[in-house]
Structures are given as structure tokens and as C-alpha cells.
């Protein structure tokens, strides 16, 4: 079984106190991705707090569910004041806060960021177990799989796409966005440049490679972004007509969720429009 191994990876920062019997009843999350998993899987009355980002519709796919809940600003003090029996976060954010909470005897679980839909499924099931809601976890995974199955398969010839993000960053196959491209039946240009996870692709290189699709994220709420200005470069607009440039809402692929399947559907539609 892979699940127990993943579980070990997941529970990086288990506090020394033994867990009480029964599911956690005062759950606090302070990372956008763990926030959304808690909103999906936990019973509402057991959620003590999620981070303010979870209520931002530009960043979060579940902003509506977050409304009305206590929203924290990722500070150890405010989290402690809520007296949580389980704190969820990511291995990437606020390591100092995470370590402090664990040292103060709270049960803290840091989730690693997912880099594929397979990892998304496993993480949903793991967190569901942790929250004492295994049936909800299985239902969410079934929802994800159903949405993926509804995406029409690609017809040959295969199209080549490149992920072109703020400041010219691209993502290879070993990332969630890269895995979404694969599920949408698109070849990832980053592979030809030896990029497995993250790397830079100069605009010139992208233009010369002439990909069929250029895929970028949308800046949350269209907030002004210097990094995104590159995606509107006149050379890119001239070389590629609008239908060959796709924007994926950031909320769909920042975290691995059932909603992430919508990003695959969006990419598949863009792929079919090429014909």
C-alpha cells in the first residue's frame, strides 16, 4: 500500500502529545491548500478557522464556503487563542509558525504540495482519514475522477503547449500544472528544454519554438502585476492569435482539488479550438 507511506510523509510535524480518541473538533488551517481541503472534507461546525486567503475568490475555489468562518492571518498567537486540536498547513509556508505551534504542544500536520492528480487523490483521502471523514474523501475523489472522465480525449495530431507564467517561468511534467497538460492530451514544450519541474524560458525561445498553445495563469482579481506584464508582450500577441493563448484561473490549479479537473476541461476545450 502507498497510502501509509504517504501518511508518514504527511505527518511531518506530529506533536508529542497523544491524540485523543475521536475526530478533531477544533480544526485550524493556515495555508490556502490545506484550507480548501478542510472546507471540502470537514464538517463545518468542526472548522475553527481557515486563512483569509481561503475567502478570496481570486485565489480560492471555495471562497463561498469560507465566508462566515473565522479567518486567520497565519499568526501563531491567533491560532493558539482558538485552542485547536488539529492544525493543518503546508510544508512550504510559514515554517517558523509551524515549528512554534508544534513546540507549544499542538498537533500540527504539514501537507506537502501536490505535483500531480494522482497525488491529489492520495492527499484528499489522507486528509479525509485525518479528519475522521473517510467517506467524504472517497466521494471527493469520485467527483474528481468523474470530471476527468467527462473531458473529451484528444484527437491526433497532438498539440504542443507551453506553460508560460509570470516573469517567464515555465513548468515541466513534474508539477501539477504539467500533469494537467498531460491529462488534457497536450505535449509540454518544457520537456524539449530539459525542464522537469520549474525553469525559465526566455520569450525569444518561446516564439521560435512556435507552440500551438501558450498556457498562463490569471492574476487573482486582475490585480496589477509586473510579472504578468510579460504575458501581454506585443511580440507574443503578434505571433499567437488569442485562441492560441489560454488563461487558467489561478484558483483552479494552485492546489490539488476536485475543482482542478475543471482546469483540464478548460485546456481540452482550448486544444479542440485549435482545429
Amino acid at each position: 500500500m502507498i497510502r501509509p507511506a504517504l501518511m508518514g510523509l504527511l505527518a511531518l510535524l506530529l506533536a508529542p502529545v497523544p491524540t485523543e480518541a475521536g475526530p478533531p473538533r477544533r480544526i485550524v488551517s493556515f495555508n490556502l491548500c490545506s484550507d480548501q481541503l478542510v472546507l471540502l472534507l470537514a464538517r463545518r461546525e468542526r472548522i475553527a478557522s481557515v486563512s483569509y486567503l481561503a475567502a478570496d475568490p481570486a485565489m480560492s475555489a471555495l471562497a463561498d464556503q469560507a465566508r462566515g468562518l473565522h479567518l486567520n492571518h497565519r499568526q501563531a498567537e491567533e491560532i493558539l487563542a482558538l485552542d485547536p486540536d488539529l492544525v493543518l498547513t503546508s510544508t512550504f509556508t510559514d515554517r517558523a509558525t509551524t515549528a512554534l505551534l508544534a513546540r507549544l504542544g499542538r498537533r500540527v500536520v504539514a501537507l506537502p504540495p501536490v505535483t500531480s492528480l494522482a497525488e491529489t487523490r492520495a492527499q484528499i483521502l489522507d486528509v479525509a482519514d485525518l479528519l475522521g471523514e473517510p467517506a467524504r474523501g472517497r466521494a471527493m475523489v469520485a467527483e474528481l475522477d468523474a470530471a476527468l472522465a467527462a473531458v473529451p480525449p484528444p484527437a491526433p495530431p497532438r498539440a504542443r503547449a507551453v506553460l508560460f507564467q509570470a516573469n517567464g517561468w515555465t513548468e515541466g511534467p513534474a508539477t501539477l500544472a504539467g500533469d494537467l497538460l498531460r491529462h488534457a492530451g497536450l505535449d509540454n514544450l518544457a520537456v524539449s528544454y530539459g525542464i522537469d519541474a520549474y525553469g525559465r524560458l526566455p520569450l525569444e525561445t518561446v516564439l521560435l519554438a512556435a507552440p500551438d498553445l501558450v498556457v498562463s495563469g490569471t492574476m487573482p482579481g486582475n490585480a496589477p502585476s509586473l510579472g504578468q506584464a510579460l504575458l501581454d508582450h506585443p511580440a507574443l500577441r503578434t505571433a499567437l492569435p488569442d485562441r492560441r493563448r489560454v488563461r487558467v484561473p489561478e484558483a483552479l490549479w494552485t492546489c490539488g482539488l476536485p475543482q482542478t479537473a475543471d482546469a483540464v476541461a478548460l485546456l481540452a476545450r482550448a486544444r479542440d479550438r485549435l482545429r
Partner: peptide
């Protein structure tokens, strides 16, 4: 700024 990545972007700029 409403853009959560503003600080990272500006470091490069």
C-alpha cells in the same frame, strides 16, 4: 497591494 505576489515580483524588478 491586492496582488499577493507583488513583493516577489518587485524584488526582481
Amino acid at each position: 497591494s491586492p496582488n499577493p505576489f507583488a513583493a516577489t515580483e518587485i524584488t526582481f524588478w
